[in-house]
Simulated assay, not measured.
Amino acid sequence: MPRISAADRRSDFVKAAVEVIAEHGIDGATTRRIAEQANAPLATLHYCYNSKEDLFGDVYTFVAERFKEVAVTSDPHGDVPETARQLLRGVMECYLESENFAATTLELVSWARRQHGDKGIGVYDEALEILRQLLRTADSADELDDNGVDEIAYVIATLADGFALNWLTYGDPSAAQEQMAVVTSVLDSWLSARLSPVGAS
């Protein structure tokens, strides 16, 4: 049987932690449950991680990287409204694809905010900065100042988070698909008003 590297083991534990946190919350995500979810001995988990906080730090990094991957693979091309729309849909589809990822993300941000204020804020800062960078690449981005880019990134994040909470509450995939369309239309309406030239009728 091939030997599993420490890096692969850590990856397994991170993925297992996402599942356990989603089901049991941060407080219920014991190292024993995480090891069982990963089909690994508890001693192996303690060999890979000095503490549960160290493991949660890697889960936090995993979540941040997933948001970056979602944003980049949305690969928006077009003007600011189309880019914003694609970014919003990309994040919502990520949540819809994995209810456990959505639940763990919200749990982890709340936990990090309570335990380590700066780190809790950091996951949002990083996600928002990715959105800003991609919005600045849009065809009509030169018409926006930094405040405009900040506002659009904030609205995308707020709408996506609201969608995630609703999806986690009701867990109805059919309704969620319809709600994605509603949320996207809200963004479209807001962008139309936000980007209209002053004084335009």
Results as ranks from 00 to 15, higher is better:
105 T>W: 10
105 T>Q: 03
43 A>M: 09
182 V>D: 08
93 E>I: 06
124 Y>L: 08
165 L>Q: 06
152 I>L: 01
3 R>D: 02
71 A>I: 09
106 L>C: 05
145 D>P: 06
66 R>H: 07
115 Q>D: 14
90 G>M: 05
189 S>A: 15
55 L>S: 08
156 I>G: 04
168 L>R: 04
163 F>Y: 09
151 E>Q: 09
190 W>R: 08
131 L>K: 06
48 C>L: 07
34 I>G: 09
42 L>C: 01
177 Q>A: 07
162 G>K: 03
132 R>F: 11
103 A>Q: 08
189 S>F: 13
20 V>Y: 10
154 Y>I: 03
110 S>V: 08
143 E>M: 14
28 G>H: 15
106 L>N: 05
175 A>Q: 06
166 N>R: 13
80 V>W: 02
120 G>W: 06
11 S>E: 15
147 N>W: 05
53 E>N: 03
200 A>N: 06
65 E>G: 03
147 N>K: 06
22 A>E: 09
165 L>R: 07
27 D>L: 15
170 Y>I: 12
186 V>F: 10
62 F>K: 05
120 G>F: 08
92 M>K: 01
88 L>D: 07
157 A>M: 02
63 V>N: 02
19 E>G: 07
114 R>S: 14
157 A>Q: 04
80 V>F: 00
177 Q>L: 04
156 I>K: 00
158 T>Q: 02
75 D>Q: 00
145 D>M: 04
107 E>Y: 13
105 T>M: 03
133 Q>W: 13
178 E>V: 03
73 T>V: 02
160 A>C: 03
42 L>T: 06
176 A>L: 05
96 L>F: 10
156 I>W: 01
118 D>F: 14
134 L>T: 11
154 Y>G: 07
39 N>Q: 14
